[in-house]
């Protein structure tokens, strides 16, 4: 019996630290979707750029973890804003599919541009943290990295919640996502607000990228594809456009994956995540926290 509880607690720890990373990426997807209804497929690749910036800071500039994280977040925020201005802003009035295809194009551009510039080889992250493994009770273990991931995520999410709820920028973001035209009539600068949303989302993705690099030790230019897709699934699972939904969805995805891997079906873990997504969508078509809006004629 004890081993079953140990197993459950162990997988909970693994799932929460993996889920935190997914949640951080999913927040960017959901915020961008909430404000301009665009699935920003390039988001996972912004995470990759963040991871490479972190790698550059820690190996070449020999910086510590926190400054590297900050630099990666600031650079990716800038990149996110530039991408929005160049590629998505001209398409704000065009069909949503055109914007979606542009996002796919942007994602290809970052991935293969990344391969051209950074070469396809896998880079190894230096050991930023002590590789201590804690073993509090029974067979349960967790690494120093787990604590860092969970702490970073909690701090960033609290900051985000505070920003969105209580600051002027946050109020503007909520107003723009509610009704763009009414917001602009109230004197809100819609373009700047959208830029800020991209900046915040991209910086969270960069944080996730650095955490992935620190935790799994290796990074490559195509590393953004699968985590990006899973984070997007997490955002949809929670209800896309809803910030708490992204957090919930991210954690759910992480837990599903670690439990499925834990019971010995690691090759099926992606399939399990998608399967649960589809079941949730069939039962509740707008995600776990989504509201069902009736379409009026």
């Amino acid at each position: 019996m004890g081993s079953v509880t140990d197993f459950v607690i162990q997988q909970l720890i693994n799932g929460i630290s993996l889920g935190s990373i997914y949640a951080l990426i999913a927040l960017g997807y959901t915020m961008v979707y909430g404000i301009i209804q665009l699935i920003n497929f390039a988001h996972g690749d912004i995470m990759m750029v963040g991871a490479y910036t972190g790698w550059f800071c820690t190996t070449v500039l020999k910086l510590a973890f926190l400054p590297s994280l900050m630099i990666a977040m600031v650079l990716s925020a800038t990149l996110g804003m530039i991408i929005e201005r160049i590629a998505y802003k001209p398409l704000r009035k065009a069909s949503r599919l055109a914007a979606l295809i542009t996002a796919i194009g942007m994602s290809f551009f970052l991935e293969y541009g990344g391969i051209l510039v950074l070469t396809p080889q896998t880079r190894t992250f230096p050991a930023v943290f002590p590789q201590t493994v804690y073993n509090p009770i029974g067979e349960i273990t967790f690494k120093y990295g787990d604590i860092v991931i969970i702490l970073t995520t909690v701090i960033l999410m609290s900051l985000l919640q505070f920003t969105v709820k209580y600051t002027r920028v946050g109020k503007a973001m909520r107003a723009v996502s509610f009704d763009k035209e009414a917001a602009s009539l109230m004197g809100i600068n819609v373009n700047n607000t959208i830029s800020v949303t991209f900046a915040i989302g991209s910086s969270l993705a960069a944080a996730a990228g650095v955490l992935i690099g620190v935790y799994f030790n290796t990074i490559n230019p195509l590393m953004g594809i699968m985590p990006g897709l899973k984070a997007f699934v997490a955002a949809v699972l929670g209800g896309i456009g809803i910030i708490p939904g992204a957090m919930l969805g991210g954690l759910a995805m992480g837990l599903i994956e670690s439990f499925v891997s834990g019971i010995g079906f690691s090759t099926w873990r992606d399939a399990a995540a998608f399967f649960i997504l589809i079941i949730v969508l069939i039962v509740k078509p707008t995600g776990l926290l989504g509201k069902n809006i009736r379409e009026k004629v």
């Binding site: 590629a87 295809i101 542009t102 796919i104 194009g105 942007m106 994602s107 290809f108 551009f109 991935e111 293969y112 541009g113 051209l116």
Partner: peptide, 9 residues
């Protein structure tokens, strides 16, 4: 892929 991406955008 880079050329295709730029053309697409």
């Amino acid at each position: 892929m880079v050329i295709i991406a730029v053309l697409l955008i």
